[in-house]
């Protein structure tokens, strides 16, 4: 849930998504779900490379197609992220062994 919560804080921010097939799309993050499926608006791409995307303004991206998401460092609170990661590690570690 850490990354779901994190990406919810990036709604209305600009991100650049790199797909597993190499396509790169920049756009404004409009929506995110638990599978890290994304909805992007105002998308920008290299239309010379991807002419089939020239008319696309807004799209849904299946989370499993994503390789990287490039973020703007000013949108990211790194100390908050590290604390959240440590808390999540404790929480998931505890659950796994709670029943034994």
């Amino acid at each position: 849930m850490l990354f779901f919560s994190f990406f919810k804080t990036l709604v209305d921010k600009e991100i650049r998504v790199e797909f597993k097939n190499g396509v790169e799309i920049t756009g404004t993050l409009k929506s995110i779900d638990q599978y890290l499926n994304l909805k992007l608006d105002n998308i920008k791409t290299d239309v010379d490379k991807y002419p089939h995307l020239i008319a696309v303004r807004s799209l849904f991206i299946r989370g499993s197609m994503i390789r990287y998401i490039h973020l703007n460092p000013v949108d990211v609170d790194t100390s908050l992220l590290q604390d959240a990661a440590r808390r999540e590690a404790i929480a998931t570690g505890g659950d796994k062994f709670a029943g034994r």
Partner: peptide
């Protein structure tokens, strides 16, 4: 280079 990047776990 990338200033800040998210890497999906399945890669």
């Amino acid at each position: 280079k990338s200033d800040m990047i998210f890497v999906r776990g399945d890669s």
